[in-house]
Design a protein around this nucleic acid. Structure first.
Length: 547
RNA sequence: GCGCCAGUAGCUCAGUUGGAUAGAGCAACAGCCUUCUAAGCUGUGGGUCGGGGGUUCGAUUCCCUCCUGGCGCGCCA
């Protein structure tokens, strides 16, 4: 049992003794101000009303009834409006580090698998151009969320949905065709809704090399195939540069070829939630929380994009994913209600909140104090590759993950690059490198540092106590971040903890200290190194041994 | 007009799900390198938590209402 659990159990006993119901669940938290102690609870304040007594009075009674030894508490006091503050003996507090040393890479991971699978869909870019900054934010978010869920014991599948059917692909093919005709000496006529980036001309060049007999691109289907293939390859390179891998690439076109789109419409009609109006087929999504009914089949007989969307999510459920998380830009938020409504209308037992959405706000890129909108290669937007090339993968990942998805993000390239020495990500990595340096310089094999025989009470400086507490809180932090699908909590926690490491490192020496202190501090250094490395790994950021 | 998200230090943003004296980075200023990495440490200044109500022991956090900004509201995808 961990130190908190012991304390909680003892508090329940004390609470019941003063008249609280047996199912009382005291909330324990770290006081903001360390001088208040190691743990605090507002239990007395929450009990005051039901017990009909003043908060401070209840607090005094609780302290009186608390078995300090059983709680593992060295000192309990009442403060402020009725907070109970607890201080642990340093030895009891720091002994928790032994668990970190044992767990190693498993520190912060759930002990047991959840036994369920979850599909995390992200990026899902149209294969019509290189990935842009928005995709970058999404890639960082989706990958980190996947890692968080994996750490919590979920069986995670990372999935990329290719919108390779429909108008935009036709426009892509005709855009490449236009470039081919330009090469053949004809006037350049990029079609309405076509693509203007330099990469279109590159694809045309490759097509011409591959099909010398069709230099003008008259075989539109062949042009389309080459364009999609080349852009998928291109996006794959972008993702590889960013260190993101997918388990499944799901093609929208397959939903048409395997009849799923037709079947979904038939199933919805059979479910009785459709109606015809003015020659079009509607789904009554308003019956399931949408704000207006949606057209499924247009008057011209073709389907709206909404139908394959529903069909696709049905496959997720049918493939055994009882949970689905979609990471998308906030500009898609209008579609969430209708997709869920479509799934509900089918009445096949898909949960109401399926899929879950993590929507992120837009990214604006600033350089030289001005918004950057144009990338030469892409023609109209800044690409992921532009950013990685300019500031490096670790920094890009961190910048995208340090903010809540709900916040609009300003990515200041000058800042990320020019301040590369004052960059938060380097600050965290530096803490890891410094800790690694202790073992390297001291010629101590970290694998031989265990908790055995360590006198934990030797870690009794304020800096050490704070660092120990932060490290011990790591699993709770990870669990909370995973639960909320919010990787930025990890990013901010790492920054705070790196600060504690730097402060401790600067103030206290390890090598050359007396044996008892040396052993304890080596154990602390190793525990901190493990925790930082595990945190960086969750965010997909490297943990260098030296910098 | 309706819906979603945001509004916190000069700038960019956190704020542990309602707690104690609201924080970090950058920017500004002043110090610290014969000792495991100075990509570091220490200190100083900087706030009407958009405005106004409400809920309660207690609100940056929850509710209502206004203001401002972003996004979305098609038989486009």
């Amino acid at each position: 049992m961990s130190a908190v659990d012991r304390l909680r159990a003892a508090l329940v006993q004390a609470a019941v003794a003063v008249g609280a119901p047996a199912d009382v669940a005291p909330a324990l938290e770290r006081p903001r101000d360390p001088s208040h102690g190691d743990w605090a609870t507002n239990l007395a304040m929450t009990l005051a009303k039901p017990l009909g007594r003043k908060p401070r009075e209840v607090a005094d009674a609780l302290v009186g009834a608390l078995d300090l030894a059983a709680a593992g508490v060295a000192e309990a006091s009442v403060a402020g409006p009725g907070f109970l503050n607890f201080r642990l003996a340093t030895g009891d507090l720091a002994a928790g580090l032994a668990r970190i040393l044992e767990a190693g890479e498993g520190w912060g991971r759930a002990d047991a698998p959840v036994g369920r699978t979850v599909v995390v869909e992200f990026v899902s870019a149209n294969p019509t151009g290189p990935l842009h900054v928005g995709h970058g934010r999404q890639a960082a978010l989706g990958d980190a969320i996947s890692a968080l869920l994996t750490a919590q014991g979920w069986d995670v599948t990372r999935e990329f949905y290719y919108n390779d059917a429909g108008v935009q692909i036709a426009n892509l093919a005709r855009s490449v065709q236009a470039r081919l005709r330009e090469r053949a000496g004809l006037p350049l006529e990029i079609p309405e809704g076509g693509y203007h980036g330099a990469y279109i001309a590159e694809i045309a060049e490759r097509y011409a090399a591959e099909y010398p007999t069709d230099a003008r691109g008259d075989e539109l289907e062949a042009v389309r195939a080459v364009a999609v293939r080349e852009l998928r390859k291109e996006q794959d390179l972008d993702l590889r540069a960013f260190g993101v891998r997918f388990d499944v690439y799901y093609l929208e076109s397959s939903l048409y070829t395997d009849g799923r789109v037709e079947r979904t419409v038939a199933d919805l009609v059979a479910a009785g939630h459709t109606f015809e109006d003015d020659g079009a087929l509607f789904l009554r999504t308003t019956a399931f929380g949408d704000d207006k009914d949606r057209v499924m089949r247009k008057r011209d007989g073709t389907f709206t994009y909404f139908v394959p969307d529903v069909a696709y999510h049905v496959t997720k459920f049918e493939r055994g994913f009882t949970r689905a998380v979609n990471v998308q830009g906030a500009d898609h938020h209008g579609t969430t209600a209708r997709v869920r409504a479509g799934l509900q209308a089918l009445g096949v037992g898909i949960p109401a909140g399926y899929p879950e959405y993590v929507l992120h706000q837009m990214v604006t890129v600033m350089r030289g104090g001005e918004e950057v909108k144009i990338s030469k290669r892409a023609g109209s937007y800044v690409t992921v590759r532009d950013l990685i090339d300019e500031v490096g993968r670790d920094a890009v990942r961190y910048f995208f993950l340090m903010r809540k998805g709900d916040s609009q993000l300003v990515f200041d390239v000058d800042l990320a690059r020019a301040q590369s020495e004052e960059n938060p990500v380097y600050y965290i990595q530096m803490a890891h490198a410094r800790l690694s340096g202790i073992f390297r310089v001291g010629e101590v094999d970290p694998s031989r540092v265990t908790g055995d025989g360590v006198v934990w009470a030797a870690l009794d400086t304020p800096e050490e106590r704070e660092l120990v507490k932060a490290l011990l809180d790591w699993p709770t932090l990870v669990a909370g971040a995973a639960d909320a699908l919010e990787p930025h909590r990890v990013a901010n926690w790492l920054l705070e903890t790196a600060r504690l490491v730097h402060t401790w490192y600067h103030k206290h020496h390890v090598l050359g200290e007396a044996p008892t202190v040396l052993a304890a501090r080596l154990a602390l250094a190793k525990a901190a190194r493990i925790t930082l490395a595990n945190g960086l790994a969750l965010l997909g950021i490297s943990a260098p041994e030296r910098m």
